[in-house]
Design a protein around this nucleic acid. Structure first.
Lengths: 207, 207
DNA sequence: CCTACCGATCGGTAGG
DNA sequence: CCTACCGATCGGTAGG
């Protein structure tokens, strides 16, 4: 009859996002391999098998999370005006990076911790984007060395140094901490500009 | 009779070390939860169950590795003479930290990535040692701020900055890289001293 | 150090 | 979205 129940289930659009966010939180807290699909399902009030109406596999969850994080970092850095003087540009990059950490802490953490558990072809793609990200920083350091706003004897190492100090911040940055994002970014950038030998009397550097 | 085979097996002393080192390598490469006991066993030419003649559990492996790494970091920092002037002391701490990374890369990586998978009481103990480690750095930064060898407006943040730049180095430090440990540590310390506003004309700072 | 084995749990599928 | 279920694999034990 016309009132027969259809078994072709059409998932809501938002449900997938809910699953991805929950997976991100659990992967952040317990790690990818230590998180079971049933655990994710429980947290979104589903049976384990029902997840597969919304996603294809556990790996797809990780891929989505890591991919979005990589894209967010890269997009934020690309927002920074590349024609700014190197010190201002670095301030912008620091602010961008810390902003992503603050706003996307679970995804960023999963990105840093679990990307190596993806298959080799996806890893290669991620490494490419990481290199593109690093190139933005390296270009800034090198431009500053060239125009004299920075004093660096080893630009590749200085770039690694800058990125190291930023990358680790996901370990301690508290989105609800004592400092506003702007204040934190300003101080962090000031420390980095000091490391790069920028003139402390120039602009907002230390007096 | 007197020649009966005894089934009480007495493990060799070195075998345990071999298992621990292999586990460290595999945990580093694939992560703790993604590494199976049978995989470890295969790499030391044993049956999976035979591992338990040498160790008590998989968790004990992780505990040993993480514990040794934490102890190595702390011991290295404590080797640095606390009566040195703050800039020299920081140079020593940088050199100590990078030395541990270089010499104990697998264990250090597992420490940073997997310590959160240990039970809460062990986590607390590790956090205590991490705090002790950080306190050595904070003391150095504060001493330098007090005696004028550093210029820092926010000592807690500056300490986090120093530790962040060091902690991330396990991601890229190549024990067989282009720079010797001494050269690398010298340059890295020089960057950090610049961040802390140390007088560049003082000692081995930038001219 | 091995053989044999166990209960639990895993990611995922069939079918409706 | 659920019920029922599968093969594979997990960490670990018994017993010698």
């Amino acid at each position: 009859m016309s009132n027969e129940r259809s078994f072709a289930y059409t998932p809501r659009v938002t449900r997938r996002q809910e699953i991805l966010q929950t997976a991100g939180d659990l992967f952040q807290r317990n790690g990818y391999h230590a998180t079971s699909m049933r655990e994710i399902a429980r947290n979104v009030q589903l049976q384990g098998s029902s997840l597969y109406a919304h996603i294809q596999s556990k790996e797809e969850l990780l891929r989505n999370i890591v991919d979005e994080a990589a894209e967010t970092f890269l997009a934020a850095a690309r927002q920074v005006d590349g024609s700014l003087p190197p010190p201002e540009r670095l301030r912008g990059l620091v602010r961008a990076h810390l902003g992503v950490i603050r706003d996307r802490l679970p995804h960023a953490t999963v990105f840093f911790h679990e990307w190596a558990h993806l298959p080799p072809d996806l890893q290669r793609e991620l490494i490419e984007r990481r290199d593109a990200y690093q190139a933005i920083f390296r270009g800034t350091v090198e431009d500053g060395a060239r125009d004299g706003s920075f004093v660096v004897e080893d630009a590749p190492l200085a770039t690694l140094f800058v990125l190291s100090s930023l990358n680790w911040t996901y370990q301690w940055l508290d989105p609800y901490g004592r400092l506003s994002l702007d204040a934190l970014a300003e101080r962090y950038a000031s420390l980095l500009l000091g490391a790069l030998g920028a003139d402390p009397t120039d602009g907002r550097g230390r007096p």
